[in-house]
């Protein structure tokens, strides 16, 4: 197994300042939001890598950088050895782009309501001038819908069926990698199970690699081989699934696991987590988690912890052992 995706020192800064005129009049400084800060990881071929984190953790931004919707400020993403941001050979970029596709969170917003399902699904191929005869019908059957659905419009389908259509569209250009941005968080539990099963089946059949972005720990635990935990744009911990769930090293991961509701936690009283996620425009100094961390010492507010290996886990914490 080799790494199909290499993410190195990825950083993305968004300028969220008000317009120039307002800034001058109100004497405001530029506001820079660091959505992703120095993140490095690798994804092995035919595996599922999950990024988990709460809002503002930068997990969606990483997904968008990976597919080329957002450009990185610093660092690089290499897909099959090609860096989309710095590569100059247009043919290579084109080849890599068709290898990576994306499934979005909201199945109601990710299909053009005015297009027939056939045209939606075939678009990735049609845009390249490829042959689309029978393509949509074949893909519809592959994702568990009927070929007769090709002539319908998106509003005739339920949320789960729409997500299947999105998967069919993602498969149209024969990709090797699919970035899944919260693919089931808008779906009901019973439908979520159907979609997750379909994704597992397709991965086996087609040898796909998934980057799975989610805030739902139960879904991640079911799907992922390897998991990266993000907090405020920083990767705080990364480990194989079972290692992470059995022995979380980072205090943030531990807090997250404790806070997640348990199906068998009848009447469970937990000590509610301290504090809130800080503002990403002015993140805390040193380790971003230190104001909420039960283990924090003086060093944590001064020095940003480096990633270090403890057993099979990579963790960015001064105190973890």
């Amino acid at each position: 197994m080799s790494a199909i995706i290499k993410v190195e020192h990825l950083t993305r800064v968004f300028d969220v300042s008000k317009p120039l005129l307002n800034r001058v009049i109100e004497r405001l400084p530029r506001a820079l939001l660091t959505a992703v800060s120095d993140v490095s990881f690798e994804i092995e071929e035919n595996s599922v890598y999950a990024l988990v984190g709460e809002s503002g953790s930068g997990k969606s931004t990483i997904g968008k950088i990976m597919v080329g919707l957002v450009a990185p400020t610093e660092g690089s993403v290499q897909i099959s050895g090609v860096d989309l941001a710095s590569e100059t050979d247009a043919a290579k970029i084109e080849a890599v782009r068709s290898e990576i596709q994306m499934i979005f969170q909201d199945p109601f917003a990710s299909l053009n309501p005015r297009w027939r399902v056939r045209d939606v699904i075939a678009e990735p191929v049609a845009a390249k001038g490829g042959d689309t005869t029978g393509l949509a019908e074949k893909l519809l059957e592959q994702v568990g819908l009927s070929a007769a659905d090709a002539g319908k419009y998106p509003h005739e389908f339920s949320g789960g069926q729409r997500q299947r259509i999105c998967i069919a569209r993602a498969l149209a250009s024969n990709p090797r990698i699919i970035v899944c941005d919260e693919p089931t968080s808008a779906l009901d539990v019973s439908v979520q199970a159907q979609v997750l099963n379909l994704m597992s089946d397709l991965r086996e059949e087609l040898g796909l690699t998934y980057l799975f972005i989610s805030h739902d720990l139960t879904v991640v635990q079911h799907m992922a081989d390897r998991i990266g935990v993000l907090y405020l744009g920083r990767l705080v911990e990364e480990a194989p699934r079972d290692v992470l769930f059995n022995d979380p090293k980072h205090p943030y991961t531990q807090m997250l696991f404790a806070a997640a509701p348990k199906m068998d936690g009848f009447g469970r009283e937990i000590e509610a987590p301290k504090g809130e996620i800080p503002d990403a425009i002015n993140p805390p100094t040193g380790c971003a988690f230190h104001p909420r961390c039960p283990l924090a010492v003086e060093r944590c507010s001064r020095e940003r912890p480096e990633m270090r290996n403890i057993g099979k886990t990579r963790v960015a914490c001064h105190m973890a052992e």
Partner: peptide
Amino acid sequence: EYIQAARLIG
């Protein structure tokens, strides 16, 4: 998101 999907497609 369907616009993002179209951008992604190229």
